[in-house]
């Protein structure tokens, strides 16, 4: 009898809870997605009159036609991709000796990379502004690429190191016996073998750079404004005719990363878990 009850009740509870979590997770996204494809009048009405007949992508079209939003998306893409590439290259170069070689003060390196992950961006933002001004890099892609790379590298190094650690030493030894130099073994064997981990790390760096806000807000003014900053400006400005436009911009800001996460979710889950292993 108890077993019977358990078998009957268990799926009900499981699905009810799972349903709650799915709603909790999806509702905020779904709501602005809805807003982004409906005229404002529909959801401002009490009660809201959402209608399938009114669904339109014109607010997306309108925002993309606005040069500053399109430019912000392009800026974010350039910055995030460059950050990702730099993080992978520098990260792999640094993670390899940490994982494989005898290095003087290796523990010092590892501690430093952990400590640098803890530094809140708020501490750095004022000096960074002054340094970038000194370097005449304010409002350039490069300034944001440098800052994001510096900030993400400790995470990236740590993730890559953990992935490299899982590769048997013998594999690299085999590559060297076969005629690879150490660097050759890194690029021809270690990185391809750590493939899924490298993909996860790359996505992590890309998303980290794409989603960053504070540095973007302070270090960019006109030409290098990333989409997150553009969106926050739109939200607080009253110079737009229609909230659907803001909602559409919000969607544009998350669509690339959400797509990445959905396509590569397996890698990402592993990468995230790996990133917090000390």
């Amino acid at each position: 009898m108890r077993q019977f009850l358990y078998d009957r009740v268990r799926p009900i509870i499981l699905y009810a809870l799972a349903g709650f979590f799915v709603i909790w997770t999806v509702a905020p996204v779904l709501w602005i997605a809805t807003m982004s494809v409906q005229p404002e009048i529909n959801y401002v009405s009490v009660p809201p009159k959402l209608s399938l007949a009114d669904v339109s992508l014109r607010w997306y079209g309108e925002m993309l036609a606005q040069t500053d939003v399109a430019a912000a998306l392009q800026n974010s893409l350039i910055i995030a991709l460059s950050t990702m590439v730099l993080c992978l290259v520098f990260g792999a170069l640094a993670a390899y000796p940490l994982s494989r070689l005898q290095l003087p003060r290796k523990n010092w390196f590892l501690t430093a990379s952990i400590v640098s992950r803890m530094i809140p961006s708020m501490v750095l933002i004022i000096p960074m502004f002054l340094i970038m001004r000194q370097l005449r890099l304010l409002d350039t892609h490069l300034s944001l690429i440098i800052v994001y790379t510096t900030f993400l590298l400790p995470y990236v190094i740590w993730m890559l190191k953990n992935f490299f650690d899982q590769i048997p030493y013998a594999l690299e030894a085999a590559a060297r016996m076969d005629g690879c130099t150490r660097l050759g073994a890194l690029f021809r064997v270690m990185i391809p073998v750590a493939g899924p981990g490298v993909v996860a790390t790359a996505v992590f760096a890309f998303i980290g750079a794409w989603n960053e806000f504070l540095f973007g807000l302070i270090l960019s003014t006109r030409f290098a404004v990333p989409i997150t900053v553009k969106l926050s400006a739109l939200v607080s400005s009253t110079f737009h005719s229609d909230t659907s436009l803001v909602a559409a911009t919000g969607m544009l800001a998350i669509i690339p990363v959400v797509a990445l996460v959905f396509v590569l979710n397996r890698y990402i889950v592993r990468g995230l878990v790996e990133g917090v292993k000390y």
């Binding site: 048997p168 013998a170 594999l171 030894a173 085999a174 590559a175 060297r176 016996m177 076969d178 005629g179 690879c180 064997v189 391809p192 073998v193 493939g195």
Partner: peptide, 18 residues
Amino acid sequence: PHERGMAMVFQNYALYPH
């Protein structure tokens, strides 16, 4: 290593999985 004209067979094979 590769200049010595030696070849090695490893524990767990160490074949390149990719």
